[in-house]
Structures are given as C-alpha cells and as structure tokens.
Design a protein around this nucleic acid. Structure first.
Lengths: 142, 142
DNA sequence: TTACTTGCAAATCGTTTGCGATATA
DNA sequence: TATATCGCAAACGATTTGCAAGTAA
C-alpha cells in the first residue's frame, strides 16, 4: 500500500519521505506525461511553475523519488536517463529517430526467465527488455 | 560474406574500410577478450602496443568499426558504453556489482517477437534484452 | 595531389557535488 | 534548534570535436 499525502509519503516499512514543493511539482509533472521525460525535459516543465528551481534540484529529487520507489529511473539505449511515474513492471519502446520512450503494455514474457537455466554462472536477479523502432510520428516521415 | 585482409575490409555492398595500424590493433585486442571492454579499458590495452595512441582515436575507430558492422557497440545500463567483437545476435548479462558484461549463449526467444502484435503503434525493428545479476566472482563475496 | 587518419587539447553533454542560505519539523 | 533541502556554480566522467600535422593511395 502506498499513500501520498500533501507533505509526507508513507511507503511500506520505509521511513517517511518529506514532500517539498519542488518534489511535489516534479512528481506531478512527471505523472502528467505518458512518455518518459529526461531530467532536462522535466526541468523545463517544472520551471514554468517554480521559475527559480535548479536543474540540480530536479536531479536530486528524481534520485530521491526513485530510491523511495515512487518513480522509476529507466535505463534505455540513449545517453540520457529517463524517468517514469509508473512503477509496476512493464516494457518500453524507444524511437530510434527522436528518442521518445513509451510504455508497452504487453504481459510479462515467461519464457525469458525460463530459458536461462544452465546457460550462465551469473546469479540473475532481473532483466531489462527494451524494444526499438519508429514511433507513430517518425514512421510516417521521409 | 565478410573478409578482413591486412589493409582493407570488404563488406557486402559497402565501400572498403581502410584498416590502419591503430584500427587493426584495436580490433585485435577487442577480439582477444571474452568480456566486453569499455573504450577506456581498450585504450589501456592498445596503449601497450601503440604507446602514443590517443583516447580520441580509440573512440573514433570504435565508432567506425561499429558503423561498418565489424564490431558492435552495446548499450547496457551502466554509464559507459561497451564494445563487442561478436556481431551475431545474442544476449548479455551484466554484473550489477562490478559492471562486467558477458555473453549469454541462449537461443533467441521467439515469444518476444510474437507478443507485440496489436500492442503498439510503433514500427518495431529490434529489441535489446539484458540480464542483470551477480557475476561468478561477485556472487561469492560478502 | 587528394582524401583520410592521427595525436592533442579543448569543448561538450549529462550528471553530481560542495557550500552557504533557506525552509521545515 | 536541528535537520533536510534549496539554488547556484563548479566539478566530474564519458565522449566528441577542431585543428594542424602525418600517412597512404
């Protein structure tokens, strides 16, 4: 169970996280977006509401929110990291042309976990699956 | 068919790529390794044979070799990019503790491609699957 | 010659960090 | 008052780039 009040976020068996104004606005703006912004993109949005906020604060708070499990930092092939307000497990698609990242609401693929047995000496804990292609906008362009 | 001679590499229907001394040594050192080095790691190795080579040259040539399809640039979750002399499709495992990256010789998982239909408006061209866990060395440590 | 490649250093990009000021419990 | 967070600017690590000199067809 996760409850987010105005000022404090309670997570199961974790200590409360103070929700400052900056933190709240960052979270709100992130939740508005279906695609997953970079820190800089988010900074530009947040700046419209808190003009004096600094990029460092955005980075710091994205880190804090991700550590708390409230958002997710997604590591895609591009150079910049992107952030996601949806923390349930799901896959992502990335446009190789414009870099946009969307969710892919397909069910988890069982076979991925099944296939590993005997193939590695690593102790596998997770995997990342990222699809690549052209987004609806880029695919219709010359 | 791909033929690499001393000085020129011919790729099907692409223009020949001059193999300079630097380029050849970079490629040789990369091919010696089972794990996949970062540009800096490779630079240190190459430097033992060409002491005056610069890091910029290593980066430039890795780019050229990757563009030509002779090596592959692999984008894993870490910050640094890693490079791979094996260009056939395969999956990678990354150690979350030390960053080491190995090949995972499992057969391609058909279900991954099958599951997509109807779930996205993207034109999907490829996917990346990366496993994460602890490598044989790190998993036996406290 | 002509086109490419090199070494070097500086620039760039995304991100992190130190610090003194500020806000909040 | 004690603690955490802020804005700012500087630092950082990885990578790219401009340039003049070098190399090879």
């Amino acid at each position: 169970m996760r409850i987010i009040t105005n000022t404090v976020c309670y997570l199961m068996s974790e200590r409360p996280l103070k929700i400052t104004k900056q933190r709240a606005v960052i979270l709100e703006e992130l939740r508005k977006l279906k695609t997953h912004p970079t820190a800089t993109e988010l900074y530009e949005l947040v700046r419209k509401r808190i003009p004096r906020i600094s990029l460092g604060t955005v980075y710091r708070n994205l880190e804090v929110l991700a550590d708390a499990g409230i958002i997710r930092k997604i590591e895609t092939a591009g150079t910049q990291k992107r952030f996601d307000a949806m923390i349930e497990n799901h896959y992502h698609v990335r446009c190789v042309n414009c870099g946009r990242v969307d969710d892919l609401p397909v069910p988890p693929i069982r076979e991925i976990e099944d296939v590993l047995h005997g193939f590695t000496d690593y102790k596998i804990s997770s995997y990342r699956l990222e699809f690549q292609g052209l987004c609806p906008i880029c695919k219709d362009q010359p």
